[in-house]
Design a binder for these strands. Structure first.
Lengths: 141, 141
DNA sequence: TTTAATTTTGTAATCAGTACAAATTTCTAT
DNA sequence: ATAGAAATTTGTACTGATTACAAAATTAAA
């Protein structure tokens, strides 16, 4: 329960109630929520929470590398508290985002990263797929 | 010169003057321009051009698969008329976007695509890198 | 050559994200 | 403890990219 507090501190993040709440939400909801979703969910139990705080916190979390901000959806940012290397798939029909484990613990991404990148200092890699998820494929229409 | 017209027609796009102008611009400017940049550049020689037309046209181009809309920059969409499979690198300092050729003509991406994607119908793949470009690395401060 | 279909245009609206300064909370040093 | 400094949170106002929409213009078809 209080593990999150220690986790944040270990990452150099002061564990304010808001930050703990946001981090907990992200850890419990791995469905790549939007900022809006985070705010809406926490707003009820924490009525004073401001949307600006959510944005500030997420920017801090990204800097401290405890959260990824995904740009796979052109509408709005999606959050992901899983930092192990993995790719993402978004269904163009239902909009859901799925994690895609990259074989060999990201070695593939490493390989990719090597090609032609001479002189480029790569700090982040994002792999995005778009298409139709299994559930939507078996839908009539 | 008039090749573009035929190219568009071959892709099922009616070659209006606006569409030809936009396509030509994208083919001549492979530096992943923004929508704004396209509009600004063409607006002078084609004063009646509307920004809405640029947006409409680009959406059409994407549907017809003659242009990619890149979401690598969180601020605004970037355009790319190169449809051969390749990745992109954005410098976090200067903001420039570079093409990264994926070795073996996209076979690497194909490999990635295979893993764990059972049941998922992949239609697009985007690989985004972020970091510091060679030029910005050799900059003081 | 009138009618229908397509495309373009301009304006207004939307909506995610940011700037900013006041208010609050937390930390530190007495 | 407690005053003052530092960090954090909050609310409001703003920005700026993108979209909605309906009228105007262009093109195709009969």
């Amino acid at each position: 329960m209080e593990k999150v507090q220690e986790y944040l501190m270990s990452k150099g993040i002061r564990p304010s109630p808001q930050r703990i709440a946001i981090m907990n939400y992200l850890l419990d909801n791995c469905n790549h929520p939007t900022v809006e979703a985070v705010y809406d969910a926490l707003h009820t139990s924490m009525p004073t929470l401001s949307k600006t705080t959510v944005y500030n916190t997420l920017k801090l979390f990204e800097e401290k590398k405890v959260v990824q901000l995904l740009n796979i959806d052109e509408r709005n940012v999606r959050l992901d508290a899983t930092m192990e290397p993995h790719a993402h798939f978004q269904c163009m029909r239902c909009g859901k985002i799925f994690d895609v484990s990259v074989k060999n613990g990201g070695k593939m991404a490493e390989l990719l990263r090597m090609n032609e990148m001479t002189g480029f200092e790569v700090q982040q890699t994002q792999i995005y797929y778009k298409g139709i998820c299994p559930h939507c494929q078996s839908e009539k229409e």
